[in-house]
């Protein structure tokens, strides 16, 4: 699929027109940022607990809040998709956007690793107990990944094509 086709879809779907109404763009941004807050409320705070912050809390009930983070991520994906199809060349050729997507990919693989290797031991961590080392490691990677996603999310509005500034541009 080439950029033109995606841009055409942006127009045909009405997403371009929607974002270019008076408050369309800010409202989409506001929803995007609120979802960041919800993602950190569930996944971010769970990561911190597994890393040893607020150890008085048992892990299992906190881990049940992960669906809120998944829901927030889907909202972020939806608003992000609207931004992307609105001006696909500004994103696809933007190294900050490419790195943001790569970091989200790492966060996704890391999440799979958590459920495959660490969830059982992590969930059994009671009040005052340390999570198993593998769970602490994966939680650290998760938190670092999401904080990095924020970095690249900010950078992509500052360093835009056609200003080429990366090794692979």
């Amino acid at each position: 699929m080439d950029i033109e086709t995606i841009a055409q879809f942006g127009h045909d779907s009405g997403l371009y027109a929607l974002l270019h109404t008076k408050y369309g763009w800010p409202i989409a941004e506001i929803i995007h940022f609120m979802s960041v807050g919800v993602l950190f409320a569930s996944v971010g705070m769970l990561d911190l607990r597994l890393m040893g912050v607020a150890k008085a809390l048992p892990v299992r009930p906190l881990a049940r809040l992960v669906p809120f983070g998944v829901a927030a991520f889907i909202v972020n994906l939806a608003t992000g998709f609207a931004f992307f199809v609105n001006a696909p060349d500004q994103y696809a050729y933007n190294p900050a956007f490419q790195l943001k997507m790569a970091t989200i990919g790492i966060a996704g693989l890391n999440m799979i690793a958590f459920y495959a290797l660490a969830a059982k031991g992590a969930h059994a961590t009671g009040p005052g107990e340390d999570a198993p080392p593998i769970a602490r490691l994966i939680a650290g990677v998760s938190l670092a990944a999401w904080l990095t996603v924020i970095i690249f999310g900010r950078l992509l509005t500052y360093f835009r094509p056609p200003w080429h500034w990366c090794a692979w541009c």
Binding site: F33, V36, G37, V38, L39, F40, A41, S42, G44, M45, L65, F68, W146, L147, I150, I151, G153, R154, L155
Partner: peptide, 20 residues
Amino acid sequence: LILHMWGLALLVGGSALVAL
């Protein structure tokens, strides 16, 4: 702006967890 958004993530994240 990055630090501002990190602040949002930790402050609103923690507070929204308490709200949940």
